[in-house]
Simulated scan of single mutants.
Amino acid sequence: MALPTSIKLFEMAPRDGLQNEPGTLVPTATKIELIERLANAGIRHIEAASFVSPKWVPQMGDAAEVMRGIQRQHGVVYSALTPNLKGLEGALEAGVEEVAVFGAASEAFSQKNINCSIAESLARFEPVLSRANEVGVRVRGYVSCVLGCPYEGDIAPHKVADVAKALYEMGCYEVSLGDTIGVGTPLATKRMIEATRQQVPIEKLAAHFHDTYGMAIANLYAVLEEGVSVIDAATAGLGGCPYAKGASGNVATEDVLYLLEGLGIDTGIDLQVVIGTGYWITRQLGRQPSAKVALARGCTQRTPG
């Protein structure tokens, strides 16, 4: 199959990237500036916050303040994670225009992550989808552990397909397939996509890979060959998972953009500005970016500030 001619990149750094940041809470102003820098780089889809209990995810406790504080750019979608109806109502009050819900392809991971079975999690999403539909807010769906689980091991492709189908039929406009612990390889990835595309149209699927074993870019190339044209990534490779020991961050936006540019695939995003943004945010966090492209090009690519 021919590679896509254009890609929608879904930026995860402000939410998935920062939600598990250890230690001191990241200041609200820093989160807002990160989001605005990403938009200035040409990124048009940014998951900016998560409306969840601060007890469980302290870094996202200022979600409403972040969403209200952004200087929004025309044509940029600023979305938020809303796992339940309370979260959705909070997001609506803060002016969120797109939300997301998340399930898992692993029963054990679902229990550890959100304390319920896969079936129960899907049932919980029904009122969220219903309310979002009432007010004209689009809902994105996530499926975790599509290529492996820290508790169950390998995940059968048909399990992924079943959960993706349920989310799609429930009304999610797009379903993001997440290799949460980053154990996938290209062949396993292709088999997972092949099974899932039998249940959900390929243009409604997105790829969300973590880079624990260094396979994320290889896996992304594999799904591009299958026709996937939506990629989740996080600037500087930020992220991780508290319920998946050893899982590293998301695939770095910088590395994804370098791959896509090398393939002649249009993104409309300025790689140099993203590199600078990655150095800026990791400097705020007291470390270096994990993006291979950023490290190769060095800190001379940083933007002012």
Rank of each mutant, 00 (worst) to 15 (best):
K190S: 08
L81G: 06
P150R: 07
V143W: 04
Q288W: 00
V223E: 00
A291E: 00
T212N: 05
E120S: 07
V139Y: 12
A294H: 03
G75N: 05
W56A: 14
M60E: 10
R44W: 07
I269T: 14
L92P: 02
L257I: 07
I7K: 02
L88P: 06
L122Y: 06
A188V: 11
V128R: 09
A236E: 00
G286E: 03
E36N: 12
G268W: 13
Y243G: 06
E194F: 14
Y243W: 13
K112L: 12
E65Q: 15
S106I: 13
A100C: 07
E36A: 14
E97R: 13
L85F: 14
G90A: 11
P304H: 09
R131W: 14
G298C: 07
L187C: 00
V76C: 04
R197M: 15
L205F: 07
S144D: 09
A132G: 03
P289R: 01
F10P: 00
E107G: 08
S110R: 08
A63G: 09
G23E: 06
S110Y: 12
I155H: 07
I231T: 03
R37Y: 12
A234H: 02
V175S: 03
A91I: 09
G239R: 10
H74E: 15
H74M: 02
L167R: 14
G69A: 06
G262Y: 00
A247C: 09
Q198G: 11
G246P: 14
K112S: 11
E254M: 02
I43M: 13
E126T: 13
E261R: 10
E65A: 15
L122M: 13
N20C: 06
I217Y: 01
D62T: 15
G268L: 10
P83D: 08
I114A: 12
M215R: 10
Y258A: 08
P22N: 09
K204R: 15
I231D: 00
A2E: 07
G23I: 12
N113L: 10
G23R: 10
M60S: 13
A234S: 15
R37W: 09
